Simulated assay, not measured.
Amino acid sequence: MRILFFGRGVISTQYAWAFEQAGHTVDFYVRKGRKETFGSSIELEMWDARKGKKLIKESWNVKLHEEMLPNYDLIIVSVNTEQLSEAVQFLSTAAGNTPILIFNNIWQDLKSSIEPLSMNNVVFGFPGGGGGIADNRLRGGFLKMIFLEKPRAGTEYVNQLVKECFESAHFKISWVKDMQNWLWNHFAMNAAMETEVLKRGSFPALLNHRDSFANVGLNMREMIPLLKARGAKLDAISLLLTKIPPVLLGTLFNKVIFVKGSLPRLFVEYNNSKAGFAVLEVVRAANKVGVPLPRLRLAFENTEYAKEI
């Protein structure tokens, strides 16, 4: 299968490497000028957890294009949330009828998030990995599981194509019945974490404070009225963050989920992305329906986002 990844970010690079290992042809589309900046290879230092826990360390040659070439079987889009609108606008004229997987965090209504693309040509999913890129070195990794929406009427062919692609590379698919609800919950959880990151200064710093995840739980509780106003139902993770007492929640995250040496902890430690946009999106939505979010607003003080709310 010939696969095009939109952008050469952490998620795109890791899954592209896995697909190439499985025999697929993978290319990257990058913006003008990025091909020279990125170069023809990237240094990988990432954990592959599809079969056990294996550290991949290699210099990987990549194919970057600054123009959209024809004849791809699948396009996979995994970009920063604030870049998604620009990406789909470009693909609406450049992608033709090529099936597209939106492998992204999304807070908007799914249909409006990809306009003017056709919903029948798009499926939504979410990766099971993380990390960061600095000085052309990727540090991070991915788990065996990825999340994919169950077929909607008209998307059966695209879903089957995406399914075959990931399974050929030995990934396991967790099928999501209501992807809109799943992504709303996940985006809110991400905003709850980013709120704490804004206070601490970075994702790695989040892990160095004992009460960080207790605060993440309190941030999540504050967003429940907003999720309900949107018509969302709380999923298992949201219930965990909002029902368990904050002190116990902090212990659970520090001693179990993000225990030292675990892959989830490493993904956060390597995450050098800029926090704040998810929080801004949530606060903007809350303003429209009159839901107060004092904890999230407070985190914006002394940041560049303060003037935007």
Rank of each mutant, 00 (worst) to 15 (best):
N97E: 11
K63T: 15
F300A: 06
V30L: 07
N190H: 04
T81I: 01
E115A: 14
L280R: 04
L143A: 08
D135K: 10
S59Y: 00
D211K: 14
E43A: 09
V10F: 02
V268S: 10
V62C: 10
S41Y: 08
A95R: 10
G231W: 03
R34E: 14
D48Y: 08
E45Q: 13
S212R: 01
L227G: 06
K260F: 07
S78Q: 01
T81W: 00
E301N: 07
G7D: 08
L263I: 14
M46R: 00
E269P: 01
Q21H: 08
S78L: 00
A18Y: 02
S113R: 01
A95T: 11
V162L: 00
N80T: 05
K260S: 14
P70I: 14
Q83M: 07
R297I: 15
K163C: 05
G276P: 12
Q21R: 14
A169T: 05
A286N: 08
K199Y: 06
K228E: 15
K51V: 07
K51Q: 13
L207I: 04
V279E: 03
T242M: 06
L293T: 10
P246F: 12
W47H: 02
L227A: 06
R265A: 05
I11S: 01
I114F: 07
L4T: 05
E301A: 02
D135Q: 05
V10K: 02
E269K: 15
L117P: 07
H65C: 05
N219F: 09
N271H: 15
I237L: 12
N159M: 03
V216H: 09
H186N: 11
I146P: 07
I75V: 15
Y157G: 02
D27V: 00
F124L: 02
P292M: 03
A192V: 06
R34V: 06
Q89D: 15
I257C: 09
L117M: 12
L110K: 04
M179F: 06
W107T: 08
K53Y: 08
P292R: 13
I146D: 14
A285F: 00
A278H: 01
L206Y: 12
I11K: 00
N185H: 11
M68R: 06
I224H: 12
D235I: 06
W175K: 10
T242D: 07
G261S: 08
R31K: 09
G132A: 00
M68Y: 15
L239D: 11
F147V: 09
F90S: 14
S40K: 15
R137K: 03
V282F: 04
S273D: 10
F171D: 04
K260M: 09
H24R: 01
V291H: 09
N97F: 05
A188G: 03
L263T: 01
P70M: 13
H170Y: 03
K53D: 04
I257N: 12
I75C: 10
R297E: 15
P70L: 14
N104H: 05
R31M: 11
K307P: 02
F38Q: 07
R295S: 08
W60E: 13
A214H: 06
A236M: 07
A229V: 05
K35D: 03
L44I: 04
E164S: 08
T303C: 04
K243V: 13
A275Q: 10
L249E: 12
I76Q: 01
T98N: 11
Y270F: 10
A94N: 14
L252R: 06
C165Y: 00
A236P: 00
E167W: 01
I42R: 09
N97I: 03
P127K: 02
E156R: 02
K177E: 15
F300E: 06
V259R: 15
K111W: 04
A286C: 10
